[in-house]
Simulated scan of single mutants.
Amino acid sequence: MSAIDTAPPRSLGGRLGDLFWRRPGLLVALMLMPPALWLGIVYIGSLLTLLLQSFYSLDEFSGLVVPEFTLATYAELLRPSNFDIILRTVVMAALVTIASAIIAFPIAYVAARYARGKWKALFYLGIMLPLWSSYLVKVYAWKLILAKEGILTWLFGTLHLSWALDAILAIPAIGGNSLSVSYIGTFLVFVYIWLPYMILPTQAALERVPVNLIDASSDLGGTPAMTFRNVILPLAFPGIVAGSIFTFSLTLGDYIIPQIVGTSRLFIGQAVYTQQGTAGNIPLAAAFTVVPIVIMGIYLTVAKRLGAFDAL
């Protein structure tokens, strides 16, 4: 009897190992199947259901959803009250993104160019530390800071600048009784909460700017302003756009901050919450939800062309 005939049968694990070795693509497919099913069913499936619901309508007499294809729900978005919600949210998201980019760039530049060793570790700790605390705790803390009895009002009074704060709050479009019930307060909290998401991509893009290009610009007679405008900013711009994806999209869909800090006027997230909750108008809530999805789809397409994904 030969040695082959007397060899013990291969175990199931051994046979599977041989199969996966001969067909590595099968192993990759099996490993990707669970997350792919989860993504397809839970995420994409819910988005398709949401899109389908947005083409339904609400019967005004019975209050029941009519499962018939119609564009009447989207037409409701063009009503002045609903269109103002969309416009208000987009403008706030754009302003928060611009302000975050302006504040984040010098911080990211110093960290990328000059921070080394323990100072760079301290930089990352300082940027990431606010993200480790509770989102709601931070928002409520800001509400107390911005309140009429808060520390910010006290600081203005101590510096004898109460007149300046009162003048700002008297502006009709953005003011209010106090910072905590004004668009200014909403804007400040948005910037504080989402600023780290702008700093980190910008800092990563600035670290990839070759130092020899900056030195060459100086050697060729370029002033610091010319070097910044023609060398640093174009090379760091994809990182800024990458950060703007986070700040813009997160502001666009947030409903907690405007609910706690700001006026009674709704943003898109609050409109979705109200329509699917107290109002019970699921089709209109779904239509409101589609708006930021479409806006972000356009935004991401533009960002990809600007090379933002290379900086992520």
Score class of each variant (00 low, 15 high):
T227Y: 08
L266I: 06
V137M: 15
M128K: 05
S62A: 11
F20K: 05
M128Q: 12
V181G: 00
G17L: 15
L26T: 08
V290E: 04
A164N: 08
G222V: 01
Y43P: 03
I102N: 02
T223M: 02
A216K: 06
P292L: 05
I174G: 00
I240A: 09
F309N: 05
V272K: 13
A147N: 14
G222E: 04
S264E: 11
D254H: 03
I240N: 09
P234K: 06
P238C: 02
T251D: 00
F228H: 12
W154G: 14
D166Q: 15
L213F: 05
P34V: 10
V65A: 06
Q259A: 09
A112D: 08
P234I: 07
G175N: 00
Q53G: 10
P34E: 11
L220E: 10
F190N: 12
F237A: 10
A242P: 04
A308I: 00
L266A: 08
I268L: 02
L19H: 12
L165S: 03
L78G: 02
A242M: 03
R79F: 15
G253H: 00
K138I: 11
L125P: 06
L129G: 10
I298C: 15
G269V: 04
R305C: 14
T263D: 07
Y197S: 03
A36I: 05
K304D: 13
N82Y: 06
V28W: 04
I232W: 09
L266T: 11
I293S: 15
Y140W: 00
Y114W: 08
T278Q: 12
I184D: 03
T301A: 09
M226K: 11
L27D: 14
L129E: 07
R10L: 09
